[in-house]
Nucleic acid binder design. Structure first.
Length: 813
DNA sequence: CGCACCACAATTTTT
DNA sequence: TTGTGGTGCG
C-alpha cells in the first residue's frame, strides 16, 4: 500500500493541511511564503506587510517540519494510521508531519542592522525558546566577521584583525593624501573613499584598477588607483579591515579555498536575506556563494524602499533575482497591517510616479482613518512650534510621547525642532548626529585598547602617541614614520627600539617609555579581563587625569563619556560567554546609534527619513516638504536621483500608522541663508481626497521670532552637565532586553530627575519663562508624575508646557 | 608645543 | 548657522 501514488498524494496533502493549521494566523500570501521552503524564493514585501512575521514563521516551520510543507516525499513507513492522525490533527501527529527538521545552526538569517538582527533573535526566542540561540541571525558584516575569524589566516590576516570604521578610514586616507602630497580639494577623501568602495564592490583590486586606469591614461584615476593601492597596503599592514573588506575578504576566502567554501555551503541549508533591495554586488556574490549548494535562498525586499543606492546598494539584485534563479518562486505581500487607507493611498500615489519598479499596490482592511494634514507655515520656527503644540495637544489627550516621530531629510534640520520641544518640555530622542563611539575622547581610549591588542595599528598609534601630551612632537613622529616606511615595519617597532636610531636620539627615551607602557599593558591585557584593562589604561596613560585636571568644562562631560565606555565594556562582558578585548572592539565597530533606539523610554523620536526605515509610529510628522530640501537640490533634474528621493518619501509616509502630517515653510533659513521654496512636488502627487490643507499663517510668527532669539543660544540656561549628552542616546550593546537594561542606556532629555526641585506653581500664579517672558498659569492638568500647564504669556498667547522638563525655563515670580 | 582664531563647506549613511 | 581643519602666535 505504501508506494501507492494516490496514498502518497493524499498523505502529502494531509501533511500540508496539518502544517497549514499551525500557521492559520497568517494571511494566505504570508502562509504561502512560510510554507515554500525549497529552492529560491523571492518575497516582495510591501511596507508594513508583516515580513518579519513571515521570516520568523518560516524559520519556525523549518525547525519544526523541515521541508515537509514543500515536499512530496513521504516516509517509507507511512501508513493509514499516520494519515488519520494527521487528518485528525491529533497531538502525536507531529512526527508524521516532519521531513528532516532543520537544525537551528543550519539557518542563516541576514538582516541589515544589528537592531533588526536583535529583534529577529528576540522574536525567535519567544517563539522557539532556547534553540533559537543557535540560529545565525546577524548582519552581513557580522556574519563575515564570524567566518573570517576562523580562517582569515589564509588571506594573510591574523584572526584578531581590527575593523576600521568610516572615520578611521577617512583619517587613514587623509594621511595618505598628505604623504602623497595631494590636495584634498582635488581628491576629496570622501569621494576617493567612495571610489575605492565602488571598486571593491565589483570587485576590482587596486592593481587591476591601476592597470585599467593606465590603459585609458586617465591621470586622476591613476592617482586614485595609487591611493587605493597604498590604502590597501596600509590597512593590511595594520591587520585592519574596513566594512567593505569584511565582505570582500569573506568572498575572497570562499573563492580561494574550496574546503572553507564547502564547509559553509554544507552548513547553511537555508539562507534568508532581509532588505534585499539594499544589498550591493559583493553581498550578492557572498550570498550566491553560500547558497550554491542547497539553493535554498529566500530573499525578502521591497524595491520601492531602496534608499541606499548612493551607498552602492543595487536595486538590480532584487529586480533580476527571478532571471538569475530560473526555478524561483515569487510571492507578493501587499496587504498592509500598519496604516490606514488615506496613508496607503498617499504612499501608492507617490510611488506610482516612479518608472523603475516591480509594481505593487498596498491595501488594508484598516479603514479610511484620518486624512493626512498638510501644514503651510511661514518659517522653520513656526514649523517647529507647530509640531511642538501638536505634540502637546496629543499628549494631553492621553497619547504617549513615544507614539510620535518627527522625520526630516537632513540632520541639520533637527536643531530648531529640538529647541522648540525643549522649550515646552517635551522629552525627545534625536538619532543620527554624532555617534557616541565617534566622540574624540571615546576614540582616543578605544585607540589605546586597539593598539594594545594589535601594536602594528599605525593609524591608531598615531592618534594616541602624544595624547595625553608626553613630549613626542610632530617632528619626531615624522622621523619615526619615515624610518618605519624605510624598514617596512610598524611605527611601534621603531619607537620601541628608538635608541637604535641616531635621528631619534632626542625623543628616544620618551618613545621607549611610551612603547614600554604599551608593552606592559599588552601583557596586562593577556592576563586580565577587559574592564580591568580599561581601568589600567586610563590610569597608566593618565588620560582620565588629563580630563579631570582640566579647566575646560567640556572635559567634565568628556570624562563622563570615557566612563560611559566602561559601562559598555561591562555590558559586553555580561552578554558574551567568552569576552575578549578584540571581540569587544570588533563589536564596537559594527555598532551604530540606531541600535540604541529605546522604545521603552517615553520620548518623541526625531530622526532622518533614512534612519526611520523599518520603524513605525502611530503619528508621524514630516517636516521640510519643500523643493530643494526634499527633494534635495541635487535630485532636481536627475531622473534616477529623483526616483530615489521619491522612494524615500514612500518610506517616510509608510512609517505612519494612524496620523500623518506634512509641513512646508514659505521661507526657511538653512545654513545661514533664507530661501523661499516651493512646496515639495511629492505633496502634489498625493490625491486631494487623502489630504487636507492647513495654513498656520503668520498669526504666531511674532512669537516665534521672539523665541528665535533664544533658539540660537546652544546651551541656554542649562545647569551643569553637557547639553549634548541629554539630547542623544547611546548605549552599549543590546541584544534585545526590553526591560532592565543596564544603566549605561541613558534616557535622553528625559523628564528632569524627580529629585530636582520643581517650581511650586499654583493656578493663577505668575511665572517667568526664559523664552516666552512673563505669564499667568491658567490651567494645570496633572499627568502621571508630571503636569501639563497652560500658561498665558502677555504678548505671546497661551502656551502649553510640561512642568518637569520645562521647569528649567521657568521660575515663579 | 599648545591653543586660539579664522576660513570654509555643509544630503542621506543599515555596516 | 554649525562644525571642522589649518595656520599663526605666545
Amino acid at each position: 500500500m505504501k508506494n501507492d501514488t494516490d496514498f502518497q498524494i493524499e498523505y502529502a496533502a494531509a501533511r500540508r493541511a496539518y502544517i497549514e493549521k499551525e500557521f492559520r494566523n497568517l494571511n494566505e500570501m504570508q502562509r504561502k511564503a512560510v510554507l515554500a521552503t525549497e529552492g529560491p524564493l523571492l518575497i516582495l514585501a510591501g511596507a508594513g506587510s508583516g515580513k518579519t512575521t513571515v521570516l520568523i514563521n518560516r524559520i519556525a516551520n523549518l525547525l519544526r517540519f523541515g521541508s515537509a510543507s514543500d515536499s512530496d516525499w513521504i516516509p517509507d513507513n507511512a501508513d493509514e494510521t499516520m494519515l488519520q492522525a494527521l487528518r485528525e490533527n491529533s497531538l502525536d501527529a507531529l512526527p508524521f508531519a516532519q521531513v528532516q527538521p532543520v537544525e537551528p545552526w543550519r539557518i542563516l538569517a541576514i538582516t541589515f542592522t544589528n537592531k533588526a538582527a536583535d529583534e529577529l533573535k528576540f522574536r525567535l526566542t519567544q517563539m522557539l525558546g532556547e534553540k533559537a540561540a543557535d540560529i545565525w541571525a546577524c548582519t552581513f558584516h557580522s556574519a563575515c566577521v564570524r567566518m573570517l575569524r576562523r580562517n582569515a589566516d589564509i588571506l594573510g590576516y591574523s584572526d584578531d584583525f581590527t575593523i576600521y570604521d568610516t572615520s578611521d578610514c577617512q583619517s587613514l586616507l587623509k594621511r595618505i593624501l598628505k604623504d602623497f602630497d595631494l590636495d584634498d580639494k582635488i581628491y576629496p577623501p570622501r569621494s576617493v573613499l567612495s571610489a575605492i568602495s565602488k571598486a571593491k564592490d565589483i570587485p576590482v583590486s587596486a592593481e587591476e584598477y591601476l592597470q585599467e586606469a593606465r590603459k585609458f591614461g586617465d591621470a586622476r584615476r591613476i592617482r586614485i588607483g595609487e591611493i587605493y593601492q597604498e590604502y590597501t597596503r596600509r590597512m593590511f599592514a595594520a591587520n585592519a579591515m574596513d566594512f567593505d573588506d569584511l565582505l570582500l575578504n569573506a568572498v575572497r576566502m570562499l573563492q580561494q579555498n574550496e574546503e572553507i567554501l564547502s564547509f559553509w555551503q554544507r552548513r547553511f541549508r537555508y539562507i534568508m536575506i532581509d532588505e534585499y533591495q539594499d544589498t550591493n554586488h559583493l553581498q550578492f556574490l557572498l550570498a550566491s556563494l553560500l547558497a550554491d549548494k542547497h539553493h535554498n535562498i529566500c530573499v525578502v525586499g521591497d524595491d520601492d524602499q531602496s534608499i541606499y543606492r548612493f551607498r552602492g546598494a543595487t536595486i538590480e539584485n532584487i529586480l533580476s533575482f527571478e532571471e538569475r534563479n530560473r526555478n524561483c518562486r515569487t510571492i507578493r505581500l501587499e496587504q498592509n497591517y500598519r496604516s490606514t487607507e488615506h496613508i496607503l493611498s498617499a504612499a501608492n500615489s507617490v510611488i506610482r510616479n516612479n518608472t523603475e519598479r516591480k509594481g505593487k499596490e498596498l491595501w488594508t482592511k484598516a479603514g479610511a482613518g484620518d486624512p493626512i494634514v498638510n501644514y503651510t507655515v511661514s518659517d522653520e520656527n513656526e514649523e517647529a512650534n507647530t509640531v511642538a503644540s501638536l505634540l502637546l495637544a496629543d499628549y494631553s489627550s492621553g497619547v504617549p510621547w513615544r507614539d510620535h516621530a518627527v522625520l526630516y531629510r537632513m540632520n541639520a534640520q533637527s536643531s530648531q525642532l529640538e529647541f522648540a520641544l525643549k522649550r515646552v518640555g517635551i522629552p525627545y530622542q534625536v538619532f543620527g548626529s554624532t555617534r557616541f563611539f565617534d566622540r574624540a575622547e571615546v576614540k582616543d581610549v578605544l585607540s589605546y585598547l586597539s593598539v594594545i591588542v594589535s601594536p602594528s595599528d599605525d593609524l591608531r598609534l598615531l592618534r594616541i602617541i602624544n595624547n595625553p601630551p608626553r613630549g613626542i612632537g610632530e617632528k619626531s613622529i615624522e622621523t619615526a614614520r619615515a624610518i618605519a616606511m624605510e624598514e617596512n615595519c610598524s611605527l611601534y617597532d621603531v619607537i620601541s627600539r628608538a635608541d637604535r636610531y641616531p635621528s631619534l636620539s632626542r625623543p628616544s627615551l620618551r618613545m621607549r617609555e611610551f612603547a614600554n607602557m604599551l608593552r606592559d599593558l599588552h601583557q596586562f591585557a593577556s592576563e586580565n579581563p577587559s574592564d580591568a584593562v580599561f581601568d589600567e589604561v586610563i590610569k597608566k596613560t593618565g588620560y582620565l587625569d588629563m580630563l579631570q585636571n582640566s579647566n575646560d568644562e567640556k572635559d567634565v562631560s568628556r570624562a563622563e563619556n570615557v566612563m560611559e565606555l566602561k559601562s559598555s565594556i561591562l555590558g559586553y562582558k555580561k552578554e558574551n560567554e567568552d569576552p575578549s578585548l578584540s571581540g569587544y572592539l570588533a563589536n564596537i565597530a559594527l555598532y551604530t546609534d540606531l541600535d540604541a533606539f529605546d522604545r521603552d523610554s517615553d520620548c518623541v523620536v526625531m530622526m532622518t527619513m533614512h534612519s526611520a526605515k523599518g520603524l513605525e509610529f502611530p503619528s508621524v510628522y514630516v517636516v521640510g516638504m519643500e523643493e530643494g530640501i526634499f527633494p534635495g537640490t541635487r535630485a532636481i533634474g536627475e531622473q534616477e536621483e529623483m526616483e530615489e528621493e521619491r522612494r524615500l518619501c514612500y518610506v517616510a509616509i509608510t512609517r505612519a500608522k494612524k496620523h500623518l502630517c506634512f509641513f512646508h515653510a514659505r521661507q526657511r533659513m538653512l545654513f545661514g541663508h533664507t530661501t523661499a521654496n516651493m512646496p515639495s512636488r511629492f505633496l502634489d502627487e498625493i490625491p486631494a481626497l487623502d489630504m487636507i490643507q492647513k495654513d498656520i499663517g503668520s498669526r504666531n510668527s511674532r512669537y516665534s521670532e521672539y523665541g528665535s532669539k533664544y533658539d540660537q543660544a546652544p546651551s541656554y540656561g542649562y545647569k551643569g552637565g553637557s547639553e549634548k549628552s541629554f539630547s542623544h542616546s547611546y548605549s552599549g550593546f543590546r541584544t534585545d532586553r526590553p526591560a532592565g537594561s543596564p544603566s549605561f542606556i541613558r534616557k535622553p532629555n528625559s523628564p528632569v530627575k524627580s529629585s530636582d526641585p520643581l517650581p511650586e506653581l499654583s493656578l493663577g500664579g505668575s511665572v517667568r519663562h526664559k523664552t516666552f517672558g512673563e505669564g499667568v498659569v491658567v490651567k494645570m492638568t496633572p499627568m502621571g508624575n508630571d503636569c501639563l500647564l497652560d500658561i498665558h504669556f502677555s504678548g505671546v498667547g497661551t502656551k502649553k508646557l510640561m512642568l518637569r522638563a520645562a521647569s528649567r525655563f521657568l521660575e515663579k515670580i
